[in-house]
């Protein structure tokens, strides 16, 4: 039943220069309490007449899908699974504002149609004429993990050879104001971010394979610290990886108590210093982690990883002690 799952292609739009090449030596700083994505020239990937009605999140979702597929040598897809917590914020705001401003008259259908959380997954299917399995998860900080678990189930069921999975969230000016008022965003304390990372997962490796997804787990309101640690240990055991084999922990957390007790000798990288805090930030971590395992040195340097040739990377994120996410990546030859 259990199977190896390989990352055969990926693409990452983030606040760093990660789209056209791996992250370089120059690290972009946040602007105040926010990180904003460095976006590509969308006209390279999306027809002009389609582009006109797409908000940023849809553009980012489609451009990364296009590039990840290309990177994986364009396999035929058996499933498209999206993870997004905030969804299509811009179009939601636009439609809501017109309802209020125009007192429920003269509304624009385009904004409503594009406001639904499944817009990106639906548009990928539409543009690639793909009738396959199509799903969108909207579970806050474990939206991307939900998508990964769904993909794993499809592989276990022999329902898929290649699956597109993404984690996407967009910031808007209005959302920024709300996040500041809620004290989620605070310059110097917590920088909010955004991003779109897309992966082509497969049950077979190719010469382009980045890494193996060796385990995924998510926890909801765990009892205590021990429950989280047990869950991390369990994820490792299932993959037959001893605790001491973890070379790097990409952590989404500020205080590293839970992870440091388990992995005292691992290298630590607080990846959110590069992409900011947002619900699907673990997708950014998985993209850069996979690049490191494939031997990408600039990305390794940018993350501040010193270990020479990491073989196993754990991604761990704890959101307000409500949602915990655990993703385990392994080098393919390992």
């Amino acid at each position: 039943m259990k199977k190896n799952i390989y990352i055969n292609g990926l693409s990452n739009i983030s606040p760093q220069e990660t789209f056209y090449q791996p992250m370089g030596a120059t690290i972009a700083p946040p602007q105040g309490a926010f990180f904003t994505c460095q976006e590509p020239n969308y006209k390279e990937f999306i027809q002009k007449k389609l582009l006109r009605r797409m908000s940023r999140i849809v553009r980012m979702g489609l451009a990364t899908a296009h590039k990840a597929l290309d990177d994986a040598n364009n396999p035929s897809l058996d499933a498209i699974i999206s993870g997004t917590a905030w969804g299509c914020v811009k179009d939601t705001e636009k439609f809501l504002e017109t309802i209020i401003e125009n007192k429920e008259a003269y509304l624009t259908p385009t904004a409503f149609v594009q406001s639904t959380h499944n817009t990106v997954a639906g548009q990928i299917a539409l543009l690639h004429h793909n009738n396959c399995y199509n799903m969108s998860y909207v579970q806050g900080n474990v939206s991307f993990e939900s998508a990964l678990i769904d993909a794993m189930l499809l592989f276990y069921d022999n329902k898929a050879n290649n699956i597109l999975v993404n984690g996407i969230d967009e910031q808007t000016e209005k959302l920024g104001i709300l996040l500041e008022r809620l004290e989620c965003a605070k310059a110097g304390v917590r920088v909010m971010g955004e991003g779109a990372a897309c992966f082509i997962l497969s049950d077979q490796p190719t010469p382009n394979t980045y890494a193996k997804v060796a385990g995924v787990n998510m926890l909801y309101r765990p009892k205590d610290k021990t429950a989280v640690q047990q869950s991390i240990q369990h994820t490792l055991q299932e993959a037959n990886i001893p605790l001491e084999a973890i070379d790097v922990v990409l952590t989404g957390n500020k205080t590293l108590a839970i992870e440091k007790e388990l992995f005292p000798t691992a290298d630590y990288s607080q990846y959110k210093t590069l992409c900011g805090e947002y619900p699907t930030s673990t997708a950014f971590a998985m993209a850069v982690g996979a690049q490191v395992l494939k031997g990408d040195l600039p990305t390794k340097t940018a993350l501040g990883i010193h270990k020479k040739a990491p073989k196993h990377i754990l991604i761990y994120n704890n959101h307000q002690d409500i949602n915990h996410s655990i993703i385990l990546l392994s080098k393919v030859s390992a």
Binding site: A121, S136, Y137, V138, G140, Y220, R221
Partner: peptide, 28 residues
């Protein structure tokens, strides 16, 4: 705004039941 996200209602449902397994929300 903290009650705006789709997942919020799912979590409220889970909490009202005391469920602590996997909790997720789908929006298709």
């Amino acid at each position: 705004m903290l009650t705006h996200e789709c997942a919020e209602s799912t979590e409220r449902i889970a909490d009202s039941l005391g469920a602590t397994g996997m909790v997720s929300t789908i929006s298709t």
